[in-house]
């Protein structure tokens, strides 16, 4: 039986739910086990890398017809779009009504052309961080390479100059300082996934840890 709280303590409603409905985001309760946070906490493996735009490249390769590498200027010339909505970190915070913009992963894949056998993607960051995703989670307007947050250049501690953004999954999937998307036929586990975290990470299913 689930132990209930002693009555002396009241779990308070997340602050933000007591406020007026935010302009963006759905405004309902957060995914299970999450709470709304008004700040934007950071979670990074090790020190925060310093990545200059002059040295930044993004590569899409593996099971594609055309492996392509964009430098910063070429990336900036691609068609852009904006995401407005909520993000969810496995350390329990969710943030309502965020705004990010950049280039949809669909735009990149339209140029690189995935081969039919491509089913998974391993995303790699400057510094070697990796995370794995089903290809289906990166297509149809669900994922971006984001270089802008709330109309400002993406700050370094949040993955600037550019990060992967997959807002419908826990935020460790949104690899900061993104450098490469490699398309694969078989799922290859990334950093947190090898260290006990779920291979997919859907917050609404509370897929936090291996086996959830």
């Amino acid at each position: 039986m689930t132990p209930r709280l002693r009555s002396r303590h009241e779990l308070r409603l997340p602050r933000i739910l007591r406020q007026a409905t935010p302009a963006r985001g759905h405004g309902g309760p957060p995914p299970p086990g999450q709470y709304y946070e008004s700040g934007f906490p950071t979670l990074t493996v090790g020190p925060t890398p310093k990545v200059e735009t002059a040295a930044w490249n993004l590569r899409v390769d593996g099971l594609v017809e055309h492996a392509i590498e964009w430098d910063w200027n070429a990336f900036k010339a691609l068609p852009r779009s904006t995401f407005e909505g909520d993000i969810h970190c496995v350390t329990k915070w969710s943030k309502l009504g965020t705004s990010f913009s950049g280039v949809s992963v669909d735009e990149l894949l339209a140029l690189a052309q995935p081969k039919p056998e491509a089913k998974y993607v391993l995303a790699t960051s400057v510094g070697g961080y990796t995370t794995n995703l089903p290809l289906a989670d990166l297509v149809d307007g669900k994922a971006w390479i984001a270089d802008t947050h709330e109309d400002q250049p993406l700050p370094r501690e949040h993955g600037g100059p550019a990060r992967l953004l997959v807002p419908h999954l826990y935020f460790w999937k949104s690899a900061k300082w993104i450098a490469q998307l490699r398309l694969l036929a078989e799922d290859e586990w990334g950093f947190w996934e090898r260290n006990g975290y779920h291979h997919r990470g859907d917050p609404w299913q509370e897929q936090r840890y291996t086996g959830d």
């Binding site: 689930t2 209930r4 709280l5 009555s7 009241e10 086990g33 936090r208």
Partner: peptide, 15 residues
């Protein structure tokens, strides 16, 4: 992860 449950079923988790 620790999970608390209020009498009305509302839950909060922290690490």
């Amino acid at each position: 992860d620790v999970r608390l449950t209020a009498p009305d079923g509302y839950q909060a988790q922290r690490s």
